[in-house]
Design a protein around this nucleic acid. Structure first.
Lengths: 333, 333
DNA sequence: CTGTTAGCGCATTCAT
DNA sequence: ATGAATGCGCTAACAG
């Protein structure tokens, strides 16, 4: 049975007819009840119930220029670092009556451009990017579209519009400073090869004042890739003392591999991750990391968009949410 | 600076004028180039480039009854079990020109109903649910809406429409049979309390022919909750031989807690998870689990929706993707 | 191959 | 407090 529904969905027209009022009165009764008499509202409500009317948001959006949709763009949903952000974004937006349309770029600038184009075509009331918009063409398009945009998870001198993030260079610098304070000389890096991870590596190396043996792994990072990364690093330097990882998943992999090789953590090898994934506090030993409040980023981004949509002027369109080091057993001295 | 764009976005009207053709010819040149002369297409394309035209998909959808959007509904994005499904769904849909609108139910039937209502209002060309639709009201609404629906990750005698899933009772039964074959008598269950996890527990207990000590944990399951669950189970039975977990995250937590207490895995305590998360193969010891192809579920769901949208008749609207036991070190004898 | 006509379902003018 | 007209931007019919 593949037949389409035999029922034509009820429109506002049907509701108005059933309620014995005009189209526009029915419309107002539903979307602006303040200006309609109580009796009328009741009649309309009864008609809605009896007809099973569901407003066509496409039509409403076309006319009112408010689609009640917000575009959310991630490199890939499986990048678990962004998950709390997307989740909080979705929840916070839903509570304001907006829904999220998802787009994936696969870390590819061309795909980013095409995703943004179709996204703009859907007339979203806002667009939230995880990361900065890469291509210049896309940046221009976004600006000219007039759609409120929030870039997240990074900082920039010239954001497209609004921004909620933090400095990855500073994160790398902080971890580098921490390693220096511990006196570790023979250190390595296990890292993803995306833009932000590279910024953290840059900051780390700058603080250390030199290049550091590095194992690059493709996205998405995982426990398995962490194990391989440590194997690679130990080939480069068999006497490694500490490893800085671009995610807690990688860090856990490095740790598993180290323990499997009979290395003690942290005595023989210290490990630091990034992101403060929930499992990191509960492994044995627990994993030192850098905490970033991903959910807060999502909430703030949602609020910026919603404020803009309401025509409120946004006092602080660029927000640095910062970060903090979390020392746990994997690097405690 | 909170000013809205000073440029009014170009419409198809502007493109047509710039290209010196009629509105509908411009429309066809873009969406149905086969019926337009090559010269005209070129003129229109040039006009598109010069005006920066981006089609308004809301308007197109209103008229054509094809919104090119598909609703995707999950309990919560953080339920990592569904992530490969949502990711594959998004990717596969994108390749067919559709985009995903996200909805979250928080495992709550009322919220499911309200999410589905606004979803229907957006006139999606299809709706994909992770799990079955809970509320009867929502089921009726969905049926009457005529929108193609795919429920996933479960089986049902009377699906709303189409279905891609597997039997959780059978999964539980398979794990129970596996435990029986190993001769483990003192067994426990660490499980989430959602519908599907309970079905697996039922299947497990039915096969064992009795009730089994159980630690229930709230969603989303995590390593931490797994540690607590084992602590709870060991209080109920200090001589536990094996634990069946409702996710690999829980299983990892149970394992970490066991090792932290000096128990050997699997000699003192055997562990089995569910979901075949990527890390499970690479922990030490590696984690036995039940494999379900979540990405395949997403791909199949997308194809069913797309086929329906193209008016093709769907030969097999209910697909059982099955599962398989994956024995690893945590339960190897 | 191209153009004209007529809406899709609703919300924003205006009027009463 | 209610209603009539108008059009958002686009595409499905039909015409030529």
């Amino acid at each position: 049975m593949n037949a389409v529904s035999p029922f034509k969905a009820a429109t506002l027209h049907d509701v108005a007819k059933a309620a014995g009022v005009s189209l526009i009165t029915a419309s107002r009764a539903l979307s602006n009840p303040g200006v309609v008499s109580k009796k009328t509202i009741e009649k309309v409500q009864a008609a809605v119930d009896s007809t099973g009317y569901i407003p066509n948001l496409l039509a409403g959006g076309l006319k009112s220029k408010r689609s009640l949709m917000v575009g959310g763009i991630v490199p890939a949903l499986s990048v678990s670092q962004f998950l709390p952000t997307v989740q909080a974004l979705t929840t916070e937006l839903a509570s304001a009556g907006y829904q999220l349309i998802l787009g994936q770029t696969s870390y590819d600038a061309e795909q980013e451009e095409s995703v943004l184009n179709t996204m703009i075509g859907r007339q979203p009331d806002g667009i939230v990017m995880t990361g900065l918009v890469q291509s210049q063409k896309a940046r221009d398009r976004l600006r000219r579209s007039g759609i409120p945009v929030v870039e997240t998870w990074d900082l920039s001198d010239r954001p497209v519009d609004m921004l909620v993030g933090f400095s990855h260079v500073k994160v790398g610098g902080a971890v580098g400073g921490y390693f220096l304070s511990k006196g570790w000389k023979r250190v390595g890096i296990a890292t993803g090869d995306d833009h932000r991870a590279r910024m953290r590596r840059d900051g780390f190396q700058t603080t250390l004042g030199r290049e550091v043996p590095t194992a690059f792994v493709p996205a998405p990072s995982s426990l398995e890739l962490g194990r391989r990364a440590l194997a690679e690093l130990l080939e480069k330097d068999p006497h490694l003392e500490a490893v800085c990882c671009s995610s807690d998943q990688l860090a856990q992999g490095v740790m598993v591999e180290a323990l499997a090789r009979g290395l003690r953590v942290p005595q023989d090898l210290a490990i630091c991750g990034f992101g403060n994934a929930d499992f990191g506090a509960h492994t044995v030993p627990s994993i030192s990391t850098v905490h970033v409040d991903g959910a807060e980023i999502g909430r703030l981004a949602a609020r910026l968009i919603v404020a803009r949509c309401r025509g409120e002027s946004v006092a602080q369109p660029v927000i640095d949410v910062g970060f903090r080091m979390v020392e746990r057993q994997s690097s405690a001295s």
